[in-house]
């Protein structure tokens, strides 16, 4: 009996596509709550979304350990990340540079690396897959990168995550950064963003 792995292709044009995806992520990180749309050029193995896969292909390599939530640890997803990124897959979220989880089951945010006061950039960037992401009613975001407020509707996220987010913000300059992903739509919440739910 032989298990087979469906190894999906990465970027057709790695240099240019990685640059494009990075710029979208940079813009999302610089303007928290603004939604960026990643071109649908990938067909990543389920349950990786186009957005999460593209972010990994653009930014991950042998220097960035990745933690995967249990539902993402499929042979195809692991093969995809290891083959295209060459990144180590780690078992402990606090050892990861990037983490991928589902919104409903993402671990408590303090489980990830938060960096320390002298080296706050060593924290985990958590990629959270959601059902839907839209501009509109829902969360009210403010902070650096936002002129007045941004509104973001993030569906499929565990409700108690915003309490943890406030605690995360209190750690500044330490703390995790979130990238929310729904399909090929992404929005980022750096640790500086204040989120209120009305």
């Amino acid at each position: 009996m032989t298990d087979t792995i469906d190894l999906r292709p990465g970027f057709a044009d790695p240099v240019i596509e990685a640059q494009n995806v990075f710029r979208l992520v940079l813009d999302a990180m610089a303007r928290p709550g603004r939604i960026a749309t990643i071109p649908e050029s990938l067909q990543p193995p389920s349950p990786l979304s186009v957005g999460a896969a593209a972010i990994c292909l653009a930014l991950a390599d042998h220097d960035t350990p990745i933690w995967l939530a249990p539902e993402f640890r499929t042979p195809s997803a692991i093969a995809f990340l290891k083959f295209h990124c060459g990144c180590p897959i780690v078992d402990v979220p606090a050892n990861a540079a990037f983490a991928i989880a589902n919104g409903a089951t993402v671990p408590a945010l303090d489980q990830f690396a938060i960096g320390d006061d002298a080296w706050p950039e060593t924290s985990t960037t958590v990629i959270v897959q959601l059902d839907d992401l839209a501009v509109g009613d829902g969360l009210v975001l403010s902070g650096p990168g936002i002129e007045t407020t941004h509104r973001l509707n993030a569906r499929g996220l565990r409700v108690d995550v915003w309490g943890e987010w406030r605690a995360n913000q209190g750690l500044f300059p330490c703390g995790v950064d979130l990238i929310l992903v729904a399909g090929n739509r992404i929005a980022a919440l750096p640790r500086t963003t204040t989120v209120s739910e009305n």
Binding site: A58, P120, D177
Partner: peptide, 11 residues
């Protein structure tokens, strides 16, 4: 690029 993203997150 990774350094830039963290730099933006920690102004």
């Amino acid at each position: 690029r990774r350094a830039l993203l963290k730099a933006v997150a920690i102004p």
